[in-house]
């Protein structure tokens, strides 16, 4: 005969299993399974019609590591993602401080202003940037008016960067706001009282204490930026290849399409992400240990 406590524990375990099942199923079906498929495909071969042939090989990885087209795409994507993350951080941090330090009744409206763009489809917003940056667009119209003349603003890597920063900024601001809002600004007064100037107080107190927000925001910006392909196509003019563009092309538009090579690129991208994020966590959480 089980004790009452054991009966209770048994019942708790059943409840827990019931509650976790849907989530677990979802993860297995839509996360783990596709991941396994991609991983397996990355070691397969392609035939002339673009079908996956089950013939194990390392060729796909060798191709990625040896052909400059692919290697360059990695470097370009990593560099662009780092740049996007850093610029989002530099814009987002002061913005988040400003919102967190605003009078209570202003904070929600200001946060809403950050979120309102999400009410419109992302593609539509990127097309809007085309209109802004185009040769006969809004900015160039103004530049011509004041006599500067038209500048090539669209269809280059700068335009891609602008679009990425624009799109990702909210994902930086929101976690930063959450961290800064929790930060007790009396600590800055305490630091000043103990002889720290503004910069010292920021570096020694506020920065380490809001680091969780910086890490969260950076990761949220960096990951989607590394794999993006829409912005570089619509604003960058698809002149240079980013990781996302290559993978998308290999899966859908190449002739013949090449799923195994695309899978190898995707797996490597995941590894790059894992390594970079691990390094980042290690670098930013050192203070705590």
């Amino acid at each position: 005969m089980a004790t009452l406590q054991q009966q209770q524990q048994g019942r708790d375990r059943i409840r827990l299993a019931l509650l976790l099942t849907p989530g677990l199923l979802w993860l297995v079906l839509f996360f783990a399974l596709p991941l396994v498929i991609i991983f397996v495909y990355s070691f397969m071969t392609n035939d002339a019609l673009g079908r996956v042939v089950y013939q194990p090989t390392l060729d796909n990885y060798i191709t990625v590591f040896t052909q400059s087209l692919y290697i360059n795409a990695y470097w370009r994507s990593i560099w662009t993602s780092v740049l996007t993350t850093v610029i989002c951080l530099l814009i987002g941090y002061p913005l988040a401080v400003f919102i967190a330090r605003s009078p209570q009744q202003w904070r929600m409206p200001l946060l809403m202003l950050i979120l309102i763009p999400f009410w419109t489809n992302f593609l539509v917003r990127i097309y809007a940037w085309q209109i802004i940056l185009a040769n006969n667009g809004i900015i160039n119209g103004f530049l011509e008016l004041i006599g500067v003349g038209r500048l090539p603003l669209l269809n280059n890597e700068g335009a891609t960067l602008i679009g990425l920063i624009y799109g990702e900024l909210p994902f930086m601001v929101l976690p930063l706001y959450a961290a800064i809002d929790r930060f007790d600004f009396t600590l800055m007064e305490a630091a000043a009282d103990l002889g720290a100037n503004k910069i010292q107080a920021f570096l020694r107190i506020m920065l380490p204490m809001t680091m969780p927000g910086i890490v969260a925001g950076s990761v949220l910006v960096f990951i989607p930026t590394l794999g993006q392909f829409v912005v570089s196509e619509l604003l960058g003019g698809a002149k240079v290849d980013y990781l996302g563009n290559l993978i998308q092309r290999l899966f859908l538009r190449a002739n013949p399409i090449n799923w195994p090579l695309g899978s190898a690129m995707a797996v490597l991208m995941m590894i790059v992400l894992l390594v970079l994020i691990m390094l980042y966590f290690r670098a930013t959480t050192e203070e705590e240990r």
Binding site: L187, A190, A191, D193, L194, G195, N197
Partner: peptide, 20 residues
């Protein structure tokens, strides 16, 4: 004169110790 240049120190009501 800003606080960090004054010859005084403060004990805050909330203590304001640096948690990290």
């Amino acid at each position: 004169t800003p606080p960090h240049q004054r010859p005084v120190n403060t004990v805050f009501q909330s203590y304001a110790l640096f948690p990290h």
